[in-house]
Design a protein around this nucleic acid. Structure first.
Lengths: 340, 340
DNA sequence: GTCAAATTTGACTTCGAATGCAAAACTGGA
DNA sequence: TCCAGTTTTGCATTCGAAGTCAAATTTGAC
């Protein structure tokens, strides 16, 4: 093994190296790695042998340049610490991988990062993007301008038509509210999500409307989707209802869990005997023995599958219309609420 | 705006387009986007103006090809569902982003995927990799062969010298065991992690040894790092100790939580009055009111910071030796154990 | 063995930005 | 105004694989 050869391996052998080693042209090597190309069996064998010997792997960067297909998809997620997203991310990544597509991950710490992130997204010429973060209409429009298909996850393009995959907040909250009302509750509280969360607002609005339709009032306190804010919001609700609240609707499971712990530990309230609590998402801890939260489980597998399928479709056929797919969640009865 | 121009924007304007628009050469455009290059102020202005008008963003793919620097780093994680990893992933991604480096994410569903993942890693000519998954020695060696720096996260290269960042299992478990022994416990149980987890084995071995040094026996049952296996392992331990176990050491927090719930709910055992439980990691739920797990909190921020710094150093200077950095965890006293 | 058809192969160009080098354009001092 | 020195600019080449097209080879029918 010459030093030149060793260096080649270090830097990554090229198709020319393989061609020389196998005594063929670079074109032949290229064809050999392209499924369905015309290469004689003997030639293919020689080339594969040489490729193995040199540790050759086609340079995806060079491929991307000439084919104008990077096989990269950007996944943009704002808060990975929301227990719901890691599962989504793992599913998306594995499904995309299975389709021969790599994931360029962008995790946003603050809103202001978005433009920097988009700059990078454009630079890498991604074939598409899946977004679970809040983007401005102009930012969404930029995707369309550049012909980069996007799928929004659990949010819709506000004002801009964008393809999206969502879990139906309205039907989910209806089911929860109906069951709570059947269960003979009198004072309803709601813990909302942060004001900038699309699903948070949608869920709360759906619950509030349904309660209204059924002739019930409710008090709303804002949280920010985490455990501590569930605790804090519960305290606030107990204060303003003079401890009379007996039904609590939370915009996600994590706040429901915070509220349950707070009720039990800070107030000595029994859940569900004296207070019914319901959540939304169906994340892991919701099913723990201590909580068994009554909640709506999002069909994550079906939703991620749809997101990937829709994205791939649009990469192949950019003219497809911005379909919105809405998935119904499943009511997990749990035991954190007395239902009718 | 001509149709040709519109198309250009669609496909992504090139430096030639910008050059033509600004009336300069492609080289000038290229220099204009390279920090510290020599461009006259007036020229720079013209170019930037044209770039803005055309929505030009340098093609990172083409840059990567010519400079042999993709500015991509692979992050390989086996189980994102382990509550500990999302936090690590978010930190790593944001820190790398801040350094102008993009993350190519690989999430492994099964062991067997590793070789496919590595194939892709080679194809994309990543500048480096951060690995929180079990790789065979030959797989690790492949990184060295190709001159791609790797940092292992919470594991070390078995047999192969590889740079790594770990949280010190031994000192952590020593602290926990010492405190438990001080707390007058008599029957010790351990819930181990899955056999293929490096940190799992290390933690259990450290705890077992320390107990032995202090003259205590212990019973070990294997779990797999999730909530359900904490529950199952607790049941098993209660059975084989004839309900006499009064101290339980878990290889991670999630199993500790499963065990606490199981003890309280399935056996009516008070924690920590009748049973002390300790964990490891310091993940979010460990601090919830219902648990307040006595545990070792890993210094995730410092660890991820170190991992990124070490990786960047090695990308610049590949000859650097495979340093191992060990971070001490912090004992979170919690209230799931009676300590001395 | 011949010849047309089918298959396989290689030369050459392309993708878009970076860079060495030489030419061009400035700068300021005399 | 001229010239040496400096800064700015453009030409031409490069990175590595894909794809077009024409040349070379193989195939098989007669």
């Amino acid at each position: 093994m010459t030093s030149g050869l060793a260096k080649r391996i270090q830097r990554g052998a090229t198709s020319y190296d393989v061609a020389r080693e196998a005594g063929v042209s670079q074109s032949a090597v290229s064809r050999c790695f392209k499924p369905g190309a015309s290469v004689a069996p003997r030639t293919r064998e020689k080339i594969m042998e040489a490729a193995r010997a040199l540790g050759y792997h086609p340079n995806a960067i060079a491929q991307g340049l000439i084919t104008r297909r990077s096989n990269l998809v950007a996944i943009i997620i704002s808060n990975l610490t929301n227990l719901y997203y890691p599962e989504v991310l793992a599913e998306l990544t594995q499904r995309l991988s299975a389709q021969g597509i790599r994931v360029l991950l962008f995790s946003l710490a603050t809103e202001s990062d978005v433009d920097e992130v988009l700059d990078q997204v454009w630079r890498y010429r991604v074939d598409g993007a899946i977004v679970a973060a809040r983007l401005h209409p102009e930012q969404l429009a930029a995707f369309a301008d550049r012909g980069v298909p996007v799928i929004l996850y659990n949010r819709i393009g506000e004002g801009v038509p964008v393809a999206s995959v969502c879990c139906d907040s309205v039907s989910g909250e209806h089911a929860l509210v109906d069951a709570l009302v059947e269960g003979e509750h009198h004072v309803f509280g709601i813990i909302a999500g942060p004001a900038d969360s699309y699903v948070g607002e949608e869920r709360v609005e759906a619950a509030r409307r349904r309660l209204q339709q059924l002739g019930r009032d409710c008090l709303i306190v804002r949280g920010n989707f985490d455990y501590a804010s569930g605790d804090a919001a519960l305290k606030e609700l107990m204060r303003i209802t003079d401890h009379k609240m007996d039904a609590l609707i939370c915009a996600n499971d994590l706040m429901a869990i915070g509220a349950i712990d707070s009720a039990r530990i800070n107030f000595g309230i029994e859940v569900p005997q004296n207070l019914s609590v319901v959540g939304f998402d169906g994340v892991g801890p919701a099913t723990w023995l201590a909580y068994q939260v009554t909640t709506i489980r999002q069909p994550v597998r079906r939703m991620t599958e749809a997101a990937v399928a829709m994205l791939l479709e649009r990469i192949e056929r950019p003219e497809l219309s911005p379909e919105q797919r809405l998935f119904a969640g499943e009511l997990l009865p749990g035991s954190s609420a007395r239902l009718g």
